[in-house]
Simulated assay, not measured.
Amino acid sequence: MRILVTIRKIELMKKYIAEAIGTFVLVFFGVGAAVLAGGGMGIDVPISVTGIALAFGISVVAMAYSIGPISGAHLNPAVSFGVLVAGRMSVTDFIGYAIFQTIGAIVAAIVIYVIATNSVGGYDVAANGLGQNGWGPGYGAEFFMISAFLFEVIATAVFLVVILGVTSDKGSPIMAGLVIGLTLTMIHLVGITLTGTSVNPARSIGPALLVGGTAMSQLWLFIVAPLIGGAIGGLLHKVRIVAAD
């Protein structure tokens, strides 16, 4: 019995560590594209919105096909919450996933900060930010809070509908990673000028902790809205409105 319990604990930790690593990769390359190649470093040809969106999407594709067989490659507490609401995950696993996803995101943000601030030209976090999410005056296209909230809820709900659909028994597991990555790219193409695109509480927490100020005061939206969106997507799947019969 003890052996079985030990094996179970090892399996759980393997999944949790995979989620931490996967979320690190998502934030490091996605947020890293915005910070290290998005213009704040003074490069002549900064990466475009399309490039940043692709960095996030490709990161998900890479992790889906590498750690997906281990943990499902959620990389996002809102995704895990949607999976929980859909009845495809336990509460214990959700808590473990969310904790380790957030740890991975925070570590990635710290590494990005260290890299950005250790260059000849330096990097002014106060002036250029660290890829944090936000809204209002001085941020992106300066949308109001209601616009930010609606986008994050709707985008996350759509993201969950896609994820739960392609990973279901009647989905397309071979194509799942690619479809999910392209969906996240699509979401970023629209959302970067609105909120910087969160749809992922862990992704938002990491940079906000280092930037502080407004980023921290607005962080609640990028936790609450994605979780609501994830719950909506999970519920739509659970009641089989968007699930194949």
Rank of each mutant, 00 (worst) to 15 (best):
F222A: 10
I7G: 03
F151S: 02
S59R: 02
T102D: 12
V35N: 02
T6L: 14
L84T: 04
I70G: 11
G213A: 15
M41A: 06
G181Q: 06
D93N: 15
I154C: 11
V179I: 15
S172G: 01
T92D: 07
I10C: 04
G131A: 08
I187P: 00
P173E: 08
I103Y: 07
R2P: 03
Y139Q: 09
V190E: 05
I99Y: 07
L182E: 06
G96C: 10
E142S: 14
L210N: 13
V27F: 01
F94G: 04
L36P: 08
A243E: 15
F143I: 14
V60P: 03
A155D: 00
F151D: 01
A126K: 13
I95N: 04
N128C: 05
I67Y: 10
G38V: 02
I67N: 04
H237P: 03
I103V: 15
I232E: 07
G181P: 06
E142N: 11
L184Q: 02
T156R: 00
H237G: 13
Q218Y: 14
S198M: 08
P46I: 03
Y113L: 14
N133D: 15
F56C: 06
A55R: 04
Y123V: 08
S90L: 09
R88A: 14
N133W: 05
I228N: 04
E152C: 07
D169Q: 13
A208M: 12
V114W: 11
D169E: 15
T167E: 06
I174G: 13
T6K: 13
I7L: 14
A108W: 02
A231N: 09
M41W: 05
F151H: 04
I7W: 05
G229L: 10
A109W: 00
V27G: 00
A98Q: 06
V60K: 00
F28H: 02
G39W: 01
H188E: 10
G122D: 10
G233F: 02
S66L: 11
K238D: 07
G121C: 06
V31D: 01
I205H: 09
S168E: 06
L219Q: 07
I146C: 02
F159R: 00
L12R: 12
P69V: 07
T195N: 09
G138C: 11
L164S: 09
S172R: 13
A202E: 08
G213I: 06
P226Y: 01
I3N: 13
G57S: 10
S59C: 11
T183V: 14
S48G: 12
A215G: 15
L164A: 09
V199G: 02
E142T: 11
P207A: 06
T193V: 13
I192F: 14
L160N: 08
G87A: 13
A86F: 08
T167D: 06
E142W: 08
S80H: 12
R8A: 15
F159H: 03
I228W: 09
V162D: 00
N118A: 09
A215Q: 13
I146R: 05
G230N: 09
A244N: 13
A126P: 01
P226E: 09
L164Y: 04
